[in-house]
Amino acid sequence: MKVFCVIPAWNEEKNIIETINKVLPYVDGLVIVDDYSTDKTAEILKQVKNNKITSLHHPINLGQGAALQTGNEYCLKNGAEIIVHFDADGQFLAEEIPKIIKPILEEEYEIVFGSRFMEINSDIPKFKKNVIHPLAKKFNYIFFSIKTSDPQSGFRAMTRNVAQKIKIESDRMAHCTEILAKAFDYKLRIKEVPITVLYKEFGQKFSGGFTIIKDLILKKIKG
């Protein structure tokens, strides 16, 4: 099956080449979506010459959700059968891509989410692990009936059909919850697999959580 990986990138001049080199051996196609970076990310990507690698460039900054949707649409147009979402910043391990697509290839699951809270002990900051994530999980369950162990992981894989069904409408960071909510809503065959996350100083700010909640509530009101 043709496996494509979408990597949304914003100001990742320091990490993008390393991430590309790590991911490329595991996929048939790699799509990097530059979300109007203000550093040298775009210039670096334009110099990459490889048949398997495509870089797309947003004309304005739209957000990670929007970048993933752009990547999805490109992958669908170009014959992808499995689409993997992978962060540009080096927090995920490319070696775990086979693990995340395995349930789709061998067990007919339709969408697989990587979870930071199963088995492997990732080095998650204590406040995130003990306060933010449990609250996010409760919020997801109460409002969207989402029953997964990780409410916000960005490492996921889906079949072509699922990518066609789930159109990501949340441009910014609420897309994680949106994808989960739609997967449960459409009663897809969902699987979670444990993944490793290497935490660095970055990652979402606390205030980002409020923006997510606001975006999700606004969506619910609009219907």
Binding site: V33, T54, L56, H57, H58, P59, I60, L62, A66, Q69, T70, E73, Y74, K77, D171
Partner: peptide, 12 residues
């Protein structure tokens, strides 16, 4: 967003 995406994909 939709317009920006169309532009992005048209360039490829």
């Amino acid at each position: 967003s939709n317009l920006a995406r169309k532009i992005t994909l048209m360039e490829k």
